[in-house]
């Protein structure tokens, strides 16, 4: 039997799920029978909750864009300089170097102009762009979920009557993706199901709709305006996951979800 002192030293790690398989049940057993240690654990839990709810500093408005711009600037200013340095051998190659530098700079400018001017209008017409827009909107409008529940048995029936197909709903909390709830969005003239998950501080929107014709008209993965998309057709449904979470973890998420769905 573990003593209170030993338990107290491990309560934080217990709360964090960082104790080994042998110690975890010992602490759990003690806490369930000891009021003082249990109170202590609740205190830690409350602290954690309070920090997570209120403590995070969010980025100042516009900082994300500023950061992005700085990266692009550093990208464009570094390379022509490299050309100038590498072409110092002879006056002739220096001329050539300047020409190449100019060409490179022109290319960069062209690409930047294309990205800033042309691409957004193209995005407005494609499916990925519209899905990202829904994802962004769900965060901005503070309208993440219509039904807030981590219980798949509550979210799944909620969709009935709101959309005309059945959506498999799973809570992937064990895999680190707790279900936050569901929502109905309007996309291309029909209602589609959106399931919302969390991974660390990231939100994931998982859109699900029936596969039409030859299947999903999206690349398997794509990055758009800093958001990642992962898409796959599975058992007659198209699944599109969107998040600011990195591509790799988002792929893991969709793979885990589809494993459940099969």
């Amino acid at each position: 039997m573990m003593q209170c002192k030993e338990v107290r030293e491990r309560l934080g790690a217990y709360l964090d799920g960082e104790l080994d398989e042998r110690t975890t049940p010992l602490v759990a057993g003690h806490v369930s029978g000891c009021t003082a240690c249990n109170t202590e654990l609740q205190g830690l839990r409350q602290l954690q909750q309070s920090l997570r709810t209120h403590g995070r500093w969010s980025m100042p408005p516009g900082f994300d864009a500023e950061l992005r711009q700085r990266l692009h600037d550093s990208d464009t200013e570094d390379n022509p300089r490299a050309v100038a340095v590498s072409s110092d051998d002879t006056p002739r190659s220096n001329e050539w170097g300047r020409f190449v530098a100019g060409l490179a700079a022109g290319l960069v400018l062209g690409v930047t102009l294309y990205l800033t001017l042309v691409q957004p209008t193209l995005q407005g017409h494609n499916l990925a762009g519209r899905v990202v827009a829904l994802h962004v909107q769900s965060q901005l409008a503070d309208h993440l979920v219509d039904v807030a529940s981590s219980d798949q048995h509550q979210v799944k029936p909620w969709f009935q009557g709101r959309i005309n197909y059945t959506v498999p709903v799973y809570n992937l909390a064990d895999a680190g993706f707790p279900l936050l709830g569901g929502r109905v969005d309007y996309l291309d003239g029909r209602n589609v199901a959106a399931l919302v998950f969390r991974h660390r501080q990231h939100r994931i929107n998982l859109f699900v709709w029936p596969t039409a014709g030859a299947g999903i008209k999206l690349p398997a993965s794509e990055t758009l305006r800093g958001y990642n998309l992962v898409a796959q057709s599975h058992n007659g449904l198209d699944y599109v996951a969107v998040s600011d979470l990195n591509q790799k973890e988002l792929e893991t998420f969709l793979r885990t979800y589809l494993t459940q769905a099969s």
Partner: peptide
């Protein structure tokens, strides 16, 4: 070669934006 290098740079920035930039909020915090 330099222009090719530049293209590689663009791809680098795109994958950097996809992999690392999403963590800007965590970094700022």
């Amino acid at each position: 070669q330099l222009i090719l290098g530049k293209r590689a740079g663009d791809a680098g920035l795109a994958s950097f934006e996809a992999l690392v930039l999403p963590h800007a909020a965590a970094a700022y915090n």
